[in-house]
């Protein structure tokens, strides 16, 4: 019985996932700085829910609990979902979304390594469809809010739905730049006029653009650590930029600039953390380019023509469906074989 190789040099699954979590930390810090500590509550709720449901499901499926809990994959799902949904929402929203993601999108398909869809995006899509109003109630950046909420006030709102005396919900939330852009364009406003609203910053939305930059930095760290390859982020951001540039150059009054698209919504999160999920993505280098390009195009089309302000979740889920096909048709040439 040959057991070679006897040696190995690979980061464990836990190390890889741990580095992904680490790469999210700068974005979380910026988030707290821009929107207050409420996100930490959502992140904690999501993490606990993910670990609990994962443990429960592993138990039910008669699988060892400890090795799978310590691979951190459930925590990643939790964090990505928490970062994708509005932070000022009732506690049960994130709990429900996370539980759905872990139970239905991950464990029922066989757990780690077997889920065809990105669990966080499935959780997001379910929440968006089921609770559209709550899912669009984004808090305004602290500097924009009429009455910025303290951490304890955010805590209270998340768990009891109570705002401080005399503060209305509209005073703490605002439309996201993508949302605002969409509704204003429907009112036949010019882009230049729309983007002069206080909501907009230099790159994307005020506040959120810094978070986007932090995602970009975290993503570059992952690339430097060889956790992700350049293919996915480059293809996603490149195609999104190209597509939006084409429309913008043709009609700058009605289409936002590529820079705005790159730094708004979930673009950066998607480029470095969502589509880079290896399990639900393609494995071949060429396939990764097609996959990410597809996500970018669908995202752009939903943003511009669809019913939702952002389209990352649906784009990712749709492209997840295409992964087996992409993998089949993008097999690299094997050494010594003709093309």
């Amino acid at each position: 019985m040959i057991r070679s190789p006897y040696i190995s040099d690979a980061p464990s699954v836990s190390t890889i996932m741990g580095k992904v979590l680490l790469a999210l930390v700068p974005a979380i810090a910026v988030y707290v700085w821009m929107y207050g500590g409420g996100i930490l509550i959502t992140l904690t709720l999501a993490t606990l829910t993910a670990l609990l449901t994962e443990a429960l499901m592993l138990q039910l499926r008669d699988r060892p609990v400890k090795p799978f809990l310590s691979d951190y994959s459930a925590v990643i799902t939790a964090w990505l979902l928490a970062l994708a949904i509005p932070p000022l929402t009732p506690w049960w929203l994130i709990v429900l979304g996370t539980a759905f993601a872990i139970i239905f999108a991950k464990q029922l398909y066989g757990g780690l390594g077997y889920n065809p869809f990105n669990p966080a995006m499935v959780g997001y899509a379910v929440l968006l469809i089921s609770f559209p109003v709550l899912m669009t109630k984004w808090p305004a950046a602290l500097q924009l809010a009429q009455t910025p909420l303290s951490f304890s006030e955010q805590w209270q709102f998340i768990f009891s739905g109570q705002l401080p005396q005399g503060v209305l919900i509209d005073a703490v939330t605002s439309a996201t730049p993508l949302d605002y852009l969409k509704t204003q364009l429907k009112l036949e406003q010019d882009i230049s006029v729309i983007q002069s609203a206080p909501l907009f910053g230099t790159l994307g939305g005020k506040g959120s653009e810094y978070v986007a930059v932090a995602y970009l930095l975290g993503g570059l760290y992952l690339w430097q650590q060889k956790i992700i390859s350049w293919h996915l982020p480059t293809a996603f951001l490149g195609v999104l930029a190209l597509f939006s540039a084409a429309f913008w150059l043709a009609d700058a009054a009605h289409y936002a600039s590529p820079v705005f698209h790159l730094f708004s919504g979930a673009s950066m999160l998607c480029a470095f953390f969502i589509i880079t999920d290896p399990v639900s993505g393609p494995t071949t280098p060429r396939g990764k380019l097609y996959f990410a390009g597809g996500v970018a195009i669908i995202t752009y089309l939903i943003r511009v023509y669809g019913g939702y302000p952002d389209g990352v979740a649906f784009a990712v889920i749709f492209m997840n469906i295409c992964v087996p096909l992409i993998d089949i048709y993008t097999q690299p040439r094997v050494f010594g074989h003709e093309k």
Partner: peptide
């Protein structure tokens, strides 16, 4: 552990 399709092998 299960294969996570990271394609490092490829």
């Amino acid at each position: 552990m299960p294969c996570i399709r990271c394609a490092r092998c490829a």
